[in-house]
Amino acid sequence: MERKKTAVIFPAFGCKYLGNERELLEEMSGDLNEFASRAVSAVGLDAERLFSCRDGNFEDELESQYAVYIYSCAVSNVIKRSGLHGDFTAGYSMGLYAALCHAESITFEQGLSLITMAYRGIWDVASSLPFGIGVISGLEQDEVKTLIDGKDDVEIINVNNRHNLLIAGYEKNVKNILAGAREQGALNCKYLTFHSPYHSRFMDGAAEKFKEFCESLTIYDPVYPVISTVNRRIMTTWSDVAMDLVDNINRNINWLETMSVMIDAGVDVFVECGPGRSLQRMAKFIDGEFEVFNLQNLRLLLSSDRICSSARAIHY
């Protein structure tokens, strides 16, 4: 049988949980509890709150980031133990940390530290100014670019797929662009509840501080190629990874192009490692012949002939 390629992808915080993630993972392995316990020791995570928040709507943004990272790393361990390693990996926004942990470029604890430092650095810059983020659905990227044209303080920070993108900048300007997009016929324009303008030049100061922290870490060459969401290069060395960690703070990302690079390279199965199924939903508007599996249907994938793995490692 022709061997197609598989990619392992990681969502960011803010994704909607389906509510049964904990049960599904606990049926498959003890990884979730082990990682939660390690996060309690490393960053003082409240494990009870982690497990009681079933919909993913954590009040605290940093806690929300830890949670998605812990669930993501647990799913990553499950699929690795099953023999599925993936030809590529990529992380959506802060999903980068779990992707790097999956690729064994950083340790689980380093990932937690990176999340903490990035969050604090971004908060220091963003909390003092009225920033905002908005999502626009139903307009093409070029149409939004035209709306933004000439306005220096708003950027397209991420293109999710051909119908959906994110903008960030000063609150007032973001809201003006959203109103303009609505007039142009966007099906949905929403001002988001989190206000830090991630992946934008407004985070230059945060990126500088974060770079210093990254330089203090031992980062390893990834064992699987990692695709950069910043410039879509295939990262195979620790220095590529170190650069991308910093770029991920203050440079625009593009998930549509990241997925397209992997699809063009022959990937026809994506495994979304994390809670919910946000990346699977985004992928519905990305062109190509592929399927996206997630925690909900992971057993189906591992027991199918879509991939070559030793699924017996999971207790059925």
Binding site: G138, L139, E143, H163, R182, Q184, G185, A186, L187
Partner: peptide, 11 residues
């Protein structure tokens, strides 16, 4: 039908 045409109707 263009998406933005539908969008204008939906508003």
């Amino acid at each position: 039908v263009e998406l933005k045409t539908v969008g204008k109707y939906v508003v």
